[in-house]
Design a binder for these strands. Structure first.
Lengths: 222, 222
DNA sequence: GCATGATTATACCGATCTGTATAATATTCG
DNA sequence: CGAATATTATACAGATCGGTATAATCATGC
């Protein structure tokens, strides 16, 4: 628990590793982990491919390291930090999230969320999928903390809904709707205002009325 | 405008084309359009690869045809039709969407939404990306019709928010949260109830308070 | 029955992918 | 200096990808 945990190592080996990871970060973020080959990362980083495989035995490990770095930079360094400077109260910070998203969507370099992309295209149950789901859970936990700090009822429920609005806005922006964050913020404000008035029976799982089977519709997928 | 438009042709050529499309539908839906090769579709359909390229000159055209078929079966045949049998009023149908999603998520064959997956992994501006965005827009238009039928204020605004909740729920379910649709329905009910009371200034774009720049945070992506 | 079009099987092209084998070179440190 | 470690360049293996060339076979309608 020393405070020297994240001291940046300056050894030759560590520097090389960082060069690889830095190139992977840029490429994976812009083009996705599946479309970027190891040779491309080797060329961009200026590190020989053999050295790359010396550090990370397989591409999968490089992807896992990328996920950690992405969470450190995006979730912590950008989202959490940005929200703190834009809102004084937890409630204001919850809403400020969508202002951040809006600026992100307007950025020319916006290419969607790598976490969501990986969730879509990686096999369920694979190490990469599991690790990515954890990173998304980390974000949702942060939302839950904000909701709890504001004494909102069912903070975890609000967090999961907030997460869906965020992810939905990101998908919508990726599909071309650059105003998605603004629309999401409108709805979020309305929802937040109403959330206290309707505890929504946080414990009971909201009865899904099951019909007495009308027409046995064919399943849409698979 | 004859009502013989979707008569199923029985010619040899049309039957072969349908066999290809049927195999592509199953494979693309389960594994994604990028991971499924043309040889796999040829093998599964029992149609020679040369014949496949005789019908669809390139894989991209097969993907575009798949998108049309997916919209016909999922959006129209499953979502629209399912909602109609489960809700009498437009408002009930809007909420019933999440019951449908819940059943979908619980299906063992649930592999996420192909539309969202393609939006994530295809290049922005490519024909496939554009076509997929249109299919998502078709869904949002349907939501707007329901909202308008219920005399809700700013029906298009509600539709885009509804879409985000749906997409967010799908992403959450893909990440392992099988109860996503239930949580989304709770929030949707609260939101719908409050939507009328707060017209939310449908015209004005909800002022995004821009701060007097505190710390010039580095951009997170690219 | 025969010509025409549809389908088949097979082999191949060039490109890309992850990962490895090998041997030479560069750096660091006792 | 000399030895241990890190990095380099190159070539290659084995697989998969989208797409094509060729020539034979099948089915159908006049």
């Amino acid at each position: 628990m020393s405070d020297l945990d994240d001291v940046i190592p300056t050894g030759r080996r560590a520097v090389t590793r960082q060069k690889i990871l830095e190139a992977a970060y840029t490429l994976f973020t812009a083009q996705g982990v599946n479309l970027v080959g190891v040779d491309t990362i080797s060329a961009r980083s200026g590190v020989a491919k053999m050295t790359l495989y010396h550090h990370f035995h397989a591409k999968e490990n490089l992807v896992l390291a990328y996920l950690d770095l992405r969470a450190k930079r995006w979730t912590v360094g950008w989202l959490k930090a940005g929200v703190k400077t834009r809102g004084a109260t937890p409630r204001a910070r919850l809403l400020a999230i969508f202002d951040l998203l809006h600026e992100w969507f307007e950025d020319e370099g916006f290419e969607g969320c790598p976490f969501l992309r990986i969730i879509c295209e990686s096999d369920v149950g694979s190490p990469v999928h599991k690790a990515t789901a954890l990173k998304l859970g980390q974000i949702e936990n942060f939302l839950g903390q904000l909701a709890r700090s504001d004494n909102l009822p069912d903070p975890n429920g609000l967090a999961s809904v907030w997460m869906m609005l965020m992810d939905g806005a990101i998908m919508s922006a990726r599909a071309g709707r650059k105003d998605a964050a603004l629309k999401a913020k409108q709805a979020a404000a309305v929802l937040l205002d109403a959330w206290g008035r309707k505890p929504a029976k946080s414990g009971s799982p909201a009865p899904v009325k099951r019909r007495a089977k009308a027409a046995p519709k064919r399943k849409p997928s698979r």
